[in-house]
């Protein structure tokens, strides 16, 4: 939720404004420079010329969470790292998205049973929008996850949630 969300009545100006804003957001998803383990190598491959994440407007890896829209959690999240990861997520401005890349971040992966130090899925720490399985995932898989994220952003709206009034009434009772 950012400053412009949830402000306009449905059908007022939002139809075209939605399209414009979603187009802008979709075409400039800036990820954070943030790699934790071997998945980060594949993420770097995605950023390099052969796979070229810049084709999707998401090649501007920012060195600070305050300029990023997307956190690609690429690699094993340990308990020691979890608090740092949560702090980085909290420092990102809205709207912000998270892609869990690789088996470790999806659910502990190879460390699920014997890894005393590994968080069993990064969704226990931060909310995740898309899961990209693989160990590590191919660069094409990460690009697929990015495209699904673009689909999600394209269907967002600035309109009030039509159910929010109903929910408020229910809560008032």
């Amino acid at each position: 939720m950012s400053w412009i969300d949830n402000r306009f009545e449905e059908g007022l100006i939002v139809t075209s404004l939605d399209w414009a804003i979603n187009w802008g957001r979709t075409s400039s998803i800036w990820p954070m420079t943030f790699g934790l383990a071997c998945c980060a190598i594949e993420m770097m491959a995605v950023g390099a010329s052969r796979f070229d994440i810049d084709r999707f407007g998401a090649g501007a890896f920012r060195a600070t969470p305050r300029q990023s829209d997307l956190m690609i959690v690429a690699g094993t999240v340990t308990y020691k790292m979890a608090s740092r990861l949560k702090r980085l997520y909290n420092q990102m401005p809205d709207p912000k998205y998270v892609i869990a890349m690789g088996a470790c971040t999806v659910g502990g992966g190879p460390y699920f049973k014997h890894g005393y130090h590994v968080v069993k899925g990064v969704d226990l720490v931060v909310p995740v929008d898309f899961y990209v399985p693989g160990c590590p995932p191919r660069p094409e898989a990460l690009l697929e996850g990015l495209m699904r994220l673009q689909d999600k952003i394209l269907h967002q709206t600035r309109a009030k949630d039509p159910m929010s009034r109903v929910r408020a009434e229910v809560l008032a009772k």
Partner: peptide, 15 residues
């Protein structure tokens, strides 16, 4: 050694 079942609020669901 025994695994932690919880660390700083993060559940450690082992098998």
């Amino acid at each position: 050694y025994e695994f932690p079942l919880e660390y700083h609020g993060i559940p450690a669901t082992t098998e």
